[in-house]
Amino acid sequence: MRNITYFIKTNFDLCTGCSICQLVCSERRTGGYNPRYSLLQIKHTKEELVHEPVICQHCKNPYCLAVCPVNAIKKDKNTGAVTIDSDRCTGCGICMKYCYLGAIYWSQDGLKAVKCDLCGGDPVCVKECPTGALEFIMSGGEDENG
């Protein structure tokens, strides 16, 4: 038996760079629109031949959780979601420093660390992506031999 982790798989080959994911994510956070406030990025490379969405993978061994000095970051036992308790977060920024993907951001007021929380289990970015470039995936759980 392996632990279940839900995460958002990104498919650069399907991403059109339309940023609808970022628009709806920013809307959820701010009540308005600006991709700079979304909790995912799209890297545009090779003269825009490649649009690569980058979002928290809810790692099985999250560096952010390990380095947090105040235990503000938790991994949910049932869903595997890695989330930040903003009440505990002191805004030291060490989690951002050691997140390999750069998937942790400052809150709008610049005082706390914020990251993708999978919208509590029904991520809007996945729902609104027009091409399937973002997929909501369950990994782990019972293998074939039980």
């Binding site: 059109t16 339309c18 628009l23 090779k46 825009e48 031949l49 027009p130 091409t131």
Partner: peptide, 29 residues
Amino acid sequence: WLKSAACMGCPIHCSKIGVVRTGKYAGTT
């Protein structure tokens, strides 16, 4: 062509981005 691309906020993705594979202009994105 390699894949579709889109303007900001557009689900239509009328762009088809790609690369010239062969010939004199091979490598042109």
